[in-house]
Amino acid sequence: MGMMDGLLGMVFGSGGTALRETAEVFRENAEAGAAREASQRAAALAQFAQEFARAPVSRFDRLVDSLNRLPRPALAFGTLALLVSAMTSPEWFAARMTGLALVPEPLWWLLGAVVSFYFGARHQTKGQDFQRQLAAAFAQGSRLAVETAETAQTSPATRDGNAALDEWRSRLG
């Protein structure tokens, strides 16, 4: 009996850890992998929060932001005004369209490039602002989760007899 115990102990280790460690050479431990991935995501989002943190804006910044909001509504309302003017004053509209037909093609290309770059930059700026807000919300949520976990650990009075909730809280801490 002692010889079998010794042989099985050599193969499986005492407590079965040798077999598990050997299997982990060929296949990743899913629980440890998930924990590593979660910590990497949290670190990346914390880095984003620092990167996209915004300084307070000055009056000049607010003025420029206000001016940057004007072109899109102006283009939309201007197009509607042209449609209305075509219906109410066809002669005036025809004269304006004749003038536009005389604009050389390279100038149209230049206008298209300027408008494209303006709206492209605006799209990028709005996307970055959204990422900043998302990172700030994540950072705020992380702080709340840590505070909640600390509170749950320090005050046993918060336990309400819900076994699943108690287990979840113990995993947080």
Rank of each mutant, 00 (worst) to 15 (best):
M97Q: 13
M97R: 07
M97S: 09
M97C: 07
M97A: 11
M97I: 09
M97L: 13
T98Q: 12
T98S: 12
T98N: 14
T98P: 07
T98F: 11
G99F: 02
G99D: 08
L100K: 07
L100H: 09
A101G: 11
L102E: 11
L102N: 14
L102M: 14
L102K: 14
V103K: 09
V103I: 14
P104I: 03
P104K: 10
P104F: 04
P104Y: 07
E105Y: 09
E105M: 09
E105W: 10
P106M: 00
P106T: 03
P106W: 02
P106H: 02
P106G: 01
L107H: 09
L107N: 08
L107D: 06
W108A: 07
W108I: 10
W109P: 00
W109M: 05
W109A: 05
W109I: 01
L110E: 00
L110T: 05
L110N: 01
L110K: 02
L110Y: 04
L111W: 05
G112P: 00
G112Y: 02
G112N: 08
G112D: 06
G112M: 03
A113Y: 07
A113L: 02
A113W: 03
A113P: 06
V114G: 01
V114W: 08
V114E: 06
V114M: 11
V114H: 06
V114A: 09
V115N: 02
V115E: 00
V115H: 03
V115C: 04
V115F: 01
S116W: 04
S116K: 01
F117N: 01
F117M: 03
F117V: 04
F117S: 02
F117L: 05
Y118E: 01
Y118H: 05
Y118K: 04
F119S: 03
F119K: 03
F119L: 06
G120A: 00
G120P: 00
G120F: 00
G120C: 00
A121D: 13
A121G: 12
A121H: 08
A121K: 03
A121P: 02
R122P: 00
R122N: 04
R122I: 00
H123K: 11
H123S: 14
H123F: 13
H123V: 15
H123N: 15
H123D: 14
H123E: 12
H123A: 13
H123G: 12
Q124F: 12
Q124I: 15
Q124L: 15
Q124P: 03
T125S: 15
T125P: 03
T125Q: 15
T125V: 14
K126L: 07
K126E: 08
K126H: 08
K126S: 10
G127A: 13
G127K: 15
G127C: 13
G127P: 08
G127W: 14
Q128L: 12
Q128M: 14
D129H: 14
D129N: 13
F130A: 12
F130M: 12
F130N: 10
